[in-house]
Design a protein around this nucleic acid. Structure first.
Length: 200
DNA sequence: TAGGCGATGCTCT
DNA sequence: GAGCATCGCCTAG
């Protein structure tokens, strides 16, 4: 399956705008096992100065990729089990990112199913931890350039159906929890979280 | 279908 | 030593 790489001019350098713009775009993962890809259907924005952001306390060994120039991967390990994938989103040194929360699988579904036996297609990439597992992403992808890297990169969406984007509060955080910084593709069954946060 | 909770280990205080 | 940008299993309704 062929995908067109996104170029820098096609994406906004602003965390909230990027979180919206990435809905409908495609995340492609090429590895020795083959290609898997999915349409991004859910994101969250973590802004400069945001108390819920990993970058809130300044740069550290873990979060340094959040301070890279825009469109680099920030991959972190959470709850002793899962990895989560973000896209750096502000000028170099700012410390902000967009968390990729869910994908609609569109290529390499058989490979994803081999990685996750007995999981329905709907659930393969429904949630940030599942997404990283289905795409076989770990800390070795941390810091890669998502517009130029060969292993993990962003492509444009099909551009067919209009993209209707909804918003809600973010999931799984305690600080600044009221802010509406989560974005999702309305009506998509591949979106994570409780139904009450994703009305069509 | 919705809500509660334990597992698990890294990160920072 | 506490907390965590999660998931899957369990229970109740």
């Amino acid at each position: 399956m062929h995908f067109e790489r996104l170029s820098p001019g096609e994406l906004p350098v602003d965390t909230v705008e990027l979180a919206r713009a990435l809905i409908g775009a495609v995340l492609v993962r090429d590895s020795k096992d083959g290609r898997v890809a999915g349409r991004i259907v859910e994101t969250e924005a973590y802004l400069p100065g945001d108390p819920a952001s990993h970058a809130f306390g300044g740069m550290s060994a873990r979060n340094r990729s959040m301070f890279l120039p825009p469109f680099h991967a920030y991959v972190y390990f959470i709850y002793g089990t899962y990895f989560c994938v973000n896209v750096s989103s502000e000028a170099e040194g700012e410390g902000a990112a967009v968390l990729l929360r869910a994908l609609e699988p569109i290529a390499g579904i058989d490979l994803m199913e081999r990685r996750r036996a007995d999981v329905p297609v709907r659930d393969l990439c429904r949630g940030p931890g599942r997404l990283a597992r289905a795409l076989d992403i770990d800390r070795s992808e941390d810091g890669c350039d998502l517009l130029r890297d060969e292993r993990l990169w962003l492509a444009s969406g099909a551009g067919g159906a209009p993209v209707r984007v909804g918003s809600s509060r973010r999931i799984g955080i305690t600080r600044a929890a009221h802010r509406r910084l989560r974005f999702y593709l309305r009506g998509s069954p591949f979106v994570s979280g409780p139904r009450s946060l994703s009305p069509p």
